[in-house]
Design a binder for these strands. Sequence first.
DNA 1: CCGACCTTGTTCTCTTGTTCACAAAGTGCC
DNA 2: GGCACTTTGTGAACAAGAGAACAAGGTCGG
Lengths: 230, 230
Amino acid sequence: MERQRRIPEATVARLPVYLRTLLDVQADGVTTISSERLAELAGVNAAKVRKDLSYLGSFGTRGVGYDVDHLLVQMSRELGLTRDWPVAIVGVGNLGAALANYGGFGDRGFPVAALIDADPTKVGTIFGGHTIRHLDDLPALVDELGIAIGIIATPAVGAQEVADRLVAAGVKSILNFAPAVVTVPEQATLRKVDLALELQVLSFYGQRDSIGLALREELGVAAAAKNSGA
Amino acid sequence: MERQRRIPEATVARLPVYLRTLLDVQADGVTTISSERLAELAGVNAAKVRKDLSYLGSFGTRGVGYDVDHLLVQMSRELGLTRDWPVAIVGVGNLGAALANYGGFGDRGFPVAALIDADPTKVGTIFGGHTIRHLDDLPALVDELGIAIGIIATPAVGAQEVADRLVAAGVKSILNFAPAVVTVPEQATLRKVDLALELQVLSFYGQRDSIGLALREELGVAAAAKNSGA
DNA sequence: CCGACCTTGTTCTCTTGTTCACAAAGTGCC
DNA sequence: GGCACTTTGTGAACAAGAGAACAAGGTCGG
Ligand SMILES: NC(=O)c1ccc[n+]([C@@H]2O[C@H](COP(=O)([O-])OP(=O)(O)OC[C@H]3O[C@@H](n4cnc5c(N)ncnc54)[C@H](O)[C@@H]3O)[C@@H](O)[C@H]2O)c1
Ligand SMILES: NC(=O)c1ccc[n+]([C@@H]2O[C@H](COP(=O)([O-])OP(=O)(O)OC[C@H]3O[C@@H](n4cnc5c(N)ncnc54)[C@H](O)[C@@H]3O)[C@@H](O)[C@H]2O)c1
C-alpha cells in the first residue's frame, strides 16, 4: 500500500512548463483551466497533462477543470519552489557574466549568491554586485550562503574538477554548460546544457529535410514501391 | 530490402557527444577505439554505443574496435557537418551578446553570420565585428548570407513572432532561449534551451533527496506521521 | 594455417513514456 | 430535481528506448 509518489522523469521535466503557463494565465485573471487548454498553451497532449497532474495527487474538478491557484501551489511545493535555492556561478567569463547579470533567476527563487573564478586577476573584483571569490573558498561559501546549486561556466577542461569540488563542498545540484562529459556521485544531480549539441542536432534534421525534399521530388513511383515493402 | 536509414531521436542526440569524445581522443593520437572505451568516455552504456553506431551503417572491426578517423568522417557526414551552417542571433542583449562573442561556434561549422535586433538604438551599431541589423532585414539576410539556423535570444514575449519571421524567411532550424512555448510548422525544427526549467528540475531532485535522507533516517511510522503533517 | 581471444552487431526482454478511449463524477440549465 | 453536457482520472494498448546476452566475424600469436 506504498505511497505512489514516484514522479516519472519525463513528467518532472514538464512541470516547469506547466508552471510557467499557469503563471501566465493567472496574470490574465484566469482562475480555472481545463487540461485541454493547458495542453494547448504548453504545447503538449491533453492526456499527458492529465496524467502528469494526476501524479501531483492533484484534484481537478470534473466538468470544470483545474483551479489555477491551487495547481500552482501544489506544483510549486512538488518542485521544491517554496524555498530559495541559492546559486553559485563558477567561471565568470563570457557566459558566466551574462548569467550573473540576468535578473530572471532571483525572481524565481534562484538568487545568484556567489560568483567564483580561478583566475587571480578576476578574484577580488566586483561584478554585478558580487565580489568574485576564489574556487578555494567554495566550502566556506556553501556554509555561509547555503549554496544549493552550482553552475559550471568554465572551459571544458576544468569542468570535472569544478564539479568534484562542488560536490565535495556539499552542493548536490549542478548545471553544466561546459562541453564536456562530467560525472557526479549518485547522491548528486547533474544536468547539462550543451549548445554545440543542440546546433548539431539541428544540422542533422536540417540536412535530412533537404535530402528528404530532393528524394521526394525525384523518387516518385520507386518510393511507393520501396515503402510498400516495409 | 529498404535502407534502414531512420536514426532514432535519442541516438541523434548522442552522436554529438561521441563526436566530441572522438575528437578528443584523436587529438591524443588514438587511432582505434572500442565501444567499451568510447562508452566510458562518453558516459553511456557500451551496448548503446554499438547500437547507435550501427545506425550509421558503420563498420567497426570485430576483435579490434572502430577506426577513429573513419568514425569521425561518417558521423560528421551523418550530422551534416560537412558544410557550414551560418547562424543568425536574434536579440542582442545580455545573452545574445555573450553568444555572439563566443568563439566556439564558428570553430565547429556554425559561424555567426548576422546579429539582429528590433531596438532602433541597437540597429546599426557594431558588435563583435557585425553590424546589428533590423528584424525586417531578415529575408534579405537569409538570401545574402545563407542563414540556416536562427537563435532566439529575445524576451519571451517576442519569441513566437521572431520564430514566425524566421520560418517565413526560410530558416528551418531554430534554437530558442526564451522561456516561452514556441511552435513552428512541421517542416521546421525547433529546439529549446530553458534555464529556468533546468534549475527547477534540479530543485525537484534536490528537495526529494533531502526528504529522502530524512526518510531513510527516520523511516518507519514516524516518517508517515511527519509527512501527513506537512 | 590454426586456435585462442576479442569486440562487434543484433536479438530479445524489460522499462519508460505516450496516446487513446471511456467510465466516473461533477456542473448548471431548465 | 433531473438531465444533458463537460471534463477528469485511469486502464490498456502501443511506441520508443535501454541494456543484457550471445553468436558471428575478425585478429594475431605461434
Ligand atoms: N559564451 C557562450 O556563449 C557559450 C556558449 C556555449 C557554451 N559555452 C561554454 O561555457 C563555458 C564558458 O564559456 P565562456 O565563453 O564564458 O568562457 P570564458 O573563457 O570567457 O570564461 C571562462 C571563465 O572560467 C574561468 N575558469 C577557468 N578555469 C576555471 C576553474 N577551474 N575554476 C574556476 N574558474 C575557472 C576563467 O578564469 C574564465 O573567467 C565554456 O565551456 C564554453 O564552451 C559558452
Ligand atoms: N541572460 C541570460 O543569462 C539568460 C539566461 C537564461 C535565459 N535567458 C533568456 O534569454 C532571453 C534574452 O535574455 P537577455 O538577458 O539577453 O535579455 P535582454 O533584455 O538583455 O536582451 C533582449 C534583446 O532582444 C531585443 N528584442 C526584444 N524584442 C525583440 C524582437 N521582437 N525582435 C528582435 N529583438 C528583440 C531587445 O532589443 C534586446 O536587445 C530572454 O528570454 C531570457 O529569459 C537569458
